[in-house]
């Protein structure tokens, strides 16, 4: 499904384009570092789209639709003619680029001349979410064969959030109500994956700044269900979800009136952990809810 270009000389190395998005330059630094680490381990060369700009996310979209369409158009034009697919670690960027692409193919007239001058074909970029790229069959096989240790003892619920799946007419996701990519990846890494009904529920996204009460309500609901399922950690592939679940855990637990200890891993960190990346500890130390006590308690101490 995700045909990636094989580079000459290095057998098994795949070269793809990479659109990191703004968060990975700031609060999601742990994600960015672990994406680079996991890609290196799996023999994927990430070729960053040159001079990319912000996708507009959901905040700009709430003010002006035409602007967000043009922000995405510039990125799609820059990504054309480069190695495909274009992998995107952020679910919001993924969704914006895919949505804009569909709209641009239907009606290119909305593009401003300065962007049109870039001359790219908006339909050329194959925009793929990073977690589905890393949970494709070839990646699972490679992860299994390179694994240094099983992640035994991690009882994980995989949390996919919203924008990677919905709406399926745009994302092309085959199972928007029950995605299983991360589940399969985590099983391949030897973790115990638990089923739970909140895989694709909303975390409140960017409301964390203007309306923290909303994020606290939604995240409390996710904690309740994750704990009820018997989980000792959450695994995600979206930095917005990770931030909302990780940053305010102590405060939300207080509001819930019960202890909550649920480290929130990026799937890329767990690839690093299982395949023995030397920097894995450094990534995890950037979390607000430290995974170290959990890892120590299940014999996976770093």
């Amino acid at each position: 499904m995700h045909a990636a270009r094989m580079t000459n000389g290095q057998e098994g190395t795949r070269e793809v384009s990479y659109y990191p998005g703004c968060s990975l330059e700031a609060t999601a630094r742990d994600y960015a570092e672990s994406v680079a680490g996991a890609a290196e381990l799996l023999g994927i060369k990430l070729n960053e789209v040159p001079d990319w700009n912000c996708c507009g996310a959901t905040a700009a979209h709430s003010l002006d639709h035409r602007v967000t369409l043009n922000l995405a158009a510039r990125n799609l034009a820059l990504a054309a003619g480069r190695p495909q697919p274009v992998v995107v670690p952020c679910a919001l960027c993924f969704n914006r680029l895919k949505s804009a692409q569909a709209e641009l193919m239907a009606d290119g007239a909305a593009v401003i001349p300065e962007i049109a001058e870039l001359g790219g074909n908006y339909g050329e970029a194959q925009v793929v979410e990073l977690n589905s790229f890393f949970s494709a069959g070839w990646a699972l096989e490679k992860a299994r064969s390179l694994k240094k240790r099983d992640l035994t003892g991690l009882k994980a619920v995989c949390y996919y959030g919203c924008q990677g799946q919905r709406p399926p007419a745009i994302t092309g996701h085959p199972a928007p109500e029950n995605p299983t990519g991360l589940d399969r990846l985590l099983k391949a890494l030897g973790a115990q994956v638990l089923d739970w009904p909140y895989k694709t529920d909303c975390c409140g996204a960017s409301h964390s700044v203007p309306r923290p009460d909303i994020v606290h309500t939604l995240v409390a609901r996710l904690y309740e269900r994750a704990l009820a399922a018997g989980a000792n950690c959450l695994v995600t592939g979206c930095q917005m979800c990770q931030a909302n679940l990780d940053l305010y855990q102590e405060q939300i637990a207080q509001e819930m009136g019960r202890p909550v200890y649920l480290p929130v891993f990026y799937f890329t960190e767990l690839i690093g952990l299982a395949l023995g990346h030397p920097q894995a500890g450094r990534w995890l130390d950037r979390h607000m809810t430290s995974p170290r006590p959990l890892l120590a308690s299940v014999g996976l101490a770093l």
Binding site: T58, H61, S62, C162, Q163, R166, P167, P168, P176, E177, T200, D201, C202, G204, A205, S206, H207, I214
Partner: peptide
């Protein structure tokens, strides 16, 4: 103007 753009309703 409260929507988080989770798309569940649309689906």
């Amino acid at each position: 103007m409260l929507c988080t753009s989770c798309y569940t309703c649309k689906v």
